[in-house]
Design a binder for these strands. Structure first.
Lengths: 76, 76
DNA sequence: TCCATATGTGACTCATAGTCCGTTGACTTA
DNA sequence: TAAGTCAACGGACTATGAGTCACATATGGA
């Protein structure tokens, strides 16, 4: 599985756990709603600045964000 | 401190620990030599695909890469 | 049925990610 | 004095990510 796909899955997982809509999270992260949609669906090769914004909006540390089975076994 | 700066520091730290030159790591990660320099110096807003390539070239898991004090306290 | 909320998609512009050519300076070894 | 390795930088270039929009779809409630 592609890393950008894994990233999207993780974002969606954490967003749903917080009971937020894509739009609410996008607002908090200061990105466009449709951009957030494509990130969650693994369509975007997100750059690290936006990764930081999104993780911060999820109220989780970088460490905790990446510490999950989703990121086991990167194909690349 | 900026996330892309923290990322660069972490890459450099792990690269030196492995005794690799920037060029050797760049070759392994399949990115440009000059690009690796600017990444380590926090000048690049690296996209997640290249983050994956670089971390893989460092022979470390995503989890372990981000589990370090360097990533404590993101300003964003 | 109508309306609001939530999500997804294709296309677009523009800034920049990333490559490839080279140079320079610091350091090391011969 | 070379001659080599390494890190950093720069200019020019191409590929692609950032950011936005119109529009579509699905759902649930009044």
């Amino acid at each position: 599985m592609d890393l950008q796909v894994q990233f999207g899955k993780r974002v969606k997982e954490l967003r749903l756990a917080k009971g937020l809509s894509q739009e609410a999270l996008a607002l908090k992260a200061e990105v466009d709603r449709t951009y957030m949609t494509s990130v969650e669906n693994g369509k975007r090769n997100v750059a690290i600045q936006n990764i930081g914004k999104i993780i911060a909006a999820l109220d989780i540390s970088i460490q905790d964000f990446f510490t999950t089975d989703i990121f086991e076994g990167i194909d690349e």
